[in-house]
């Protein structure tokens, strides 16, 4: 369910499920677009030669997944600040589970704070962070 204004937001609510595309082709497209093209993000074999278990998803792409989930939930929201910690590598061609929960609401300013994580299917956290989102006042 999406929200339109700050009045629609409830404390503790979880954002809707967001399924990111972590396919190698998609990860490679992102990496090239941000100027980070290369074996590490575009080839499992090439990444293994660099000592990684497979091609990596750039940490900032994880941030991109999180902000896309926010934008889907709050189509009129503006992400003013987002802070992510890259705890462990995300691998391409591996499902990622995005979750986010509302942790604070400032109804006067129209600001919502979120805690967010990207996990793998073993429930291991890969990326976590926080965001401040400005929403229209009611």
């Amino acid at each position: 369910m999406s929200v339109k204004t700050i009045e629609d937001v409830e404390f503790g609510v979880e954002l809707p499920v967001f399924e990111p595309d972590t396919s190698l082709d998609n990860v490679g497209a992102f990496a090239r677009a941000v100027g980070w093209g290369g074996a590490r993000f575009e080839s499992h074999e090439g990444a293994r030669e660099e000592g990684f278990p497979g091609a990596l998803v750039p940490g900032i792409m994880g941030m991109g997944f999180l902000t896309s989930a926010i934008h889907q939930w709050a189509p009129a929201g503006q992400v003013e600040h987002v802070d992510t910690v890259f705890r462990a590598p995300m691998l391409a061609d591996t499902p990622a589970i995005i979750s986010a929960v509302v942790t604070d609401i400032d109804e006067d300013e129209g600001i919502v704070e979120l805690d967010m994580t990207v996990k793998n299917t073993k429930d291991e956290t890969r990326v976590f962070g926080t965001a401040k989102v400005r929403l229209p006042l009611g």
Binding site: F18, P20, D21, N26, V27, A29, F30, R32, A33, V34, M61, G64, F65, T67, S68, A69, H71, Q72, P75
Partner: peptide, 14 residues
């Protein structure tokens, strides 16, 4: 063009 590619790859729809 690069902004669009990166945004779409991230799942952005806005």
């Amino acid at each position: 063009e690069k902004l669009v590619t990166a945004a779409k790859a991230s799942g952005e729809s806005r």
